[in-house]
Design a protein around this nucleic acid. Sequence first.
DNA 1: GTTCCCATGTAACCCGTTACATGATTTT
DNA 2: AAAATCATGTAACGGGTTACATGGGAAC
Lengths: 185, 185
Amino acid sequence: MASTPPESSYAILGLIDKLPSSSGHELAAAADRSFAHFWPISRTLLYRELNRLATLKWVTSTRVEQTRLPSKWTYRITDDGERALAAWLSGPVTNAGSYRNDVLLRFFFAHRLSATEVHALLEDYRKRLLAQRDELAALTDKLGSIYTPAARMGRISALHGLRTAEARLGWVEEARAELSDDNTR
Amino acid sequence: MASTPPESSYAILGLIDKLPSSSGHELAAAADRSFAHFWPISRTLLYRELNRLATLKWVTSTRVEQTRLPSKWTYRITDDGERALAAWLSGPVTNAGSYRNDVLLRFFFAHRLSATEVHALLEDYRKRLLAQRDELAALTDKLGSIYTPAARMGRISALHGLRTAEARLGWVEEARAELSDDNTR
DNA sequence: GTTCCCATGTAACCCGTTACATGATTTT
DNA sequence: AAAATCATGTAACGGGTTACATGGGAAC
C-alpha cells in the first residue's frame, strides 16, 4: 500500500515531462527559473525526488557521458508517469491555503514592543514585499513577451504572487494608519 | 550550544505571556481562536512546545487539581522567558515569504489539462478563497467591536489574510480572462 | 590562483502531521 | 445511550532544510 508521493514529486515529474532528457542539474535550474516562487525545491530534495520517481518507474534514467563536462543522468517520463501526472493534475487539491507568516506572528504580540519597533517590523516587511513585487513584475513582463503556452501559464502564475504582494503592501499602509490613530481611545 | 527553538515555541510563549495560568487545553483553544489562520498549531505540537518551554525554564508549570474535571497543568512565563520573548520579538524575521501553493503548482502544468479541467481547478480555488474571505471578514468585524489592544492587533492580523484572499479572488478573474482569449494567437 | 560552473550526492536533523489512547463528567 | 467537553499525552512517520563532500574544467 504505497502512500502517495508528496506534491514535490509531481512538481519534478511535471518538469521532466516538459523538458525531456534533462539532467538533475538542468531541472534544478528550470525549477528555480519557473515555479520556485510558489514551490521552492532545494537541491537535495530534487535529487531525492528523482530517485523516487525512478524507483516508481514514473521516469527512466539514462547515463550520458560527456567529454569536457562531468557525466550526467538524464530523465524521461514513462507511460506510467504520464498516467500518474494526469491523475494528480485532475485530482483534488490537498492543502490549498495553509501558510505561515512570521511577520504576522510577531505583529500579533506587538503589544510587547515599542511603537518604533513595530514600525521597524512593518518597514522590514514592506521592503521584502517591495523586492518580491519588483521581482515578480519583472518576471511577468519578461514572460509577457514570449508567446508559448508554457510562458503564458508561467506569467499567470507569477501574476498570482504579484497581486498578493501588492495587496500586502496595501495592508502595510492600512496597518500603519490603524496604528497611528492610537489617540482615538 | 542550544540551537534556537522554532517559531512555534515563541507563539506559545507569547500566548502564555498574554494568558497567564492557562492550561494546555485553554492555550490550544486560544491559539485556534486567535492566530490559527496564519500560524496553525496542532494539539500534539502544542504539548511538545509546552514541554520544551518548561525544560528551557522559560515557563513554570503548576499542577492544579480539580474536583469535577481532570487535573491540569498551568503555565506562567518566567523572567528568562520574558527576555527570550522580547529578544525574539525585536530580532530578525527569518523566513517571511516562503509559502507553497498547490493550486498554482497544478495550474503551472495545466497545458496537460482540458479547458474544462482548468476551469474546475480555478473554480475550486475560488470557492476556497471565498470561504476564507468570509471567515476573515467575519473575524475582522467581530474584533472591530472589541476595544482592547489585543483585539486591535488581532483584527489587523486578520485584515492581512482578508486582503490577501481578496487579491487572489481578483487573480482568479484575471486568470479566467487571460485564458478565455486563446483565440488571440 | 581563486572563483565560478558543471554534476551529483550523503548525513543529520527536526518541525509538523496523523492516528491512536485514556477516562471522567456533563449535556443531548 | 450517545456525544461532546475537559485534559494530556505517545508513536510513528516524512518532507524539507542545512551543512558538507568531491572533482574536473573554464574563466577572470
